[in-house]
Amino acid sequence: MTSRHADQVGGGAHARFTALVHEHQRGLFAHVRVLYPHADADTVVNETFTAAWQRIDDIATDGAATWLRATARNIVQNSRRGERRWQALNDKVARLAPVALSPSPDHDAGIELQIVMDALASLSVSDREVLLMTALDDLSSEDLGEILGVRANAAKVRVSRARARLRAAVADRTEPPDQGGTR
């Protein structure tokens, strides 16, 4: 939808922006909380929508969710650059927060989840990011590439490799160490 058409059907930039906030605020907040638990999600969301207001005429309706996630990611990354002294602490919090937010699964599922989250925490920040991003939203390679600032093919490869590393890390934690090792 073009901005001019949006103005005609939505009553202008303000109406379009209002609809954008109502449609995407909660999803974006959850996205930021899951992806960047060390960041203040309210601040990131507020700044993201402020940027959206400034660019409201340039945001395509069908690509708004992707645009917002890419902008939120940039805001988080920019804020990180000024907070190096907190980096080590934040990394520890980032690893723990997803588990701490667990909605009390049953025992077996809880053990599985614990293993997966432990394996996830052992991966690189880059792997964790794409795994959480694709787990949270059904993103196409094109959308993921736009958020990450890479080509779609590169995004697809990154996801594939990250998933392989997660499965391998889980296998390391579940398979007996001397399996098939009898002589």
Binding site: Q25, R26, G27, F29, A30, H31, R33, V34, A41, D42, V45, P98, L101, S102, P103, L136
Partner: peptide, 8 residues
């Protein structure tokens, strides 16, 4: 599941 619990 976690995302469902998150509200701004």
């Amino acid at each position: 599941s976690v995302a469902l619990l998150e509200r701004p």
